[in-house]
Amino acid sequence: MRRRARREVMFAGFGGQGIITAGFIVGRAAAVYDNKEATLTQAYGPEARGSTCYSGVVIDDEEIDYPYLLNPEVIVVMSKDAYEKFLPRLREGGILIVDSSIVKPDDRANKFNVYEVPATEEAEKMGARIVANVIMLGFLGKVWDAVSVEALRESVKSTVPRKYLDLNLRAFERGVELGEKALQKRVEV
């Protein structure tokens, strides 16, 4: 039985990319700013410190019966290993968002709704590759309707260190912009 209100997103990459932070920002956006129910779970072992890691967010209108990912409908992939490891978990017809600066999707991605976002390159243009995850959040807010762009923006503001707020907000807006362009492109096609 599928609970229709239950929405799931996974972030996957390697430790140090802000994979857990990205999940936290989405969960906080949904729970605090959209006032829905949300849970965040994450990789906690040695994998959280350098090698492949992930975080998972579940959003629902009612009490969440199972806090872990069951069947993610969106996966944001930010490393090659994460692509190999987690692609099989993506729901059929789900949304695959890849950091195209790092990962080139192959034929296995054809059955998904794929968005290629050069998040790391864009972040480097801003002078800090560390905000690639926040670019992805802006993008996610545009292409996925489970959490609002406004809530995500508020959540970025309340989560990132104050002295990097401007940088993070610029990164977020860049992501939103890329998301808008990607959607327009889909309509034209």
Binding site: F24, G27, R28, A31, V32, E37, A38, T39, L40, T41, Q42, Y44, I64, P67, Y68
Partner: peptide, 10 residues
């Protein structure tokens, strides 16, 4: 338990 304490929620 770990699953309550290492997961975040509202």
């Amino acid at each position: 338990s770990e699953s309550v304490c290492h997961s975040a929620g509202k």
